[in-house]
C-alpha cells in the first residue's frame, strides 16, 4: 500500500497543473469566444496575426 504515498502526491501535482492550465486559459480569453475560432481553422489562408485579442 506504500505506493499510494507516492502516487497521491503525483496526482495532486497533476491536478495542480490542470488547474493552473485552466486558469491560464480563462485569463487569456480562451473561453471568451467559442464559435469563431472553430471557423478560423477551417479557412486558414496562411495569414498570421489573426489571434483573438481581449476586448
Amino acid at each position: 500500500m506504500n505506493i499510494i504515498l507516492i502516487l497521491i502526491p503525483v496526482t495532486l501535482l497533476l491536478v495542480g497543473c490542470a488547474a493552473w492550465a485552466f486558469f491560464w486559459a480563462v485569463g487569456s480569453g480562451q473561453f471568451d469566444e467559442l464559435d469563431t475560432p472553430a471557423w478560423e481553422i477551417l479557412h486558414d489562408d496562411g495569414e498570421s496575426g489573426t489571434r483573438e485579442s481581449k476586448p
Binding site: D32, E33, L34, D35, T36, A38, W39, E40, H43, D45, E47, G49, T50, R51, E52, S53, P55
Partner: peptide, 30 residues
C-alpha cells in the same frame, strides 16, 4: 460565427489595417 470570420478577413485585407478581431459572442469588433 461565419459572419465574424468574414468581417475579420475583409477588414484585415484593407491596406493600413494592422489588426482586426470580431467577437461574435459579444458582437464587438476591435
Amino acid at each position: 460565427a461565419a459572419c465574424s470570420w468574414l468581417l475579420t478577413r475583409v477588414l484585415q485585407k484593407i491596406p493600413g489595417v494592422e489588426r482586426a478581431s470580431v467577437n461574435s459572442a459579444t458582437g464587438r469588433a476591435q
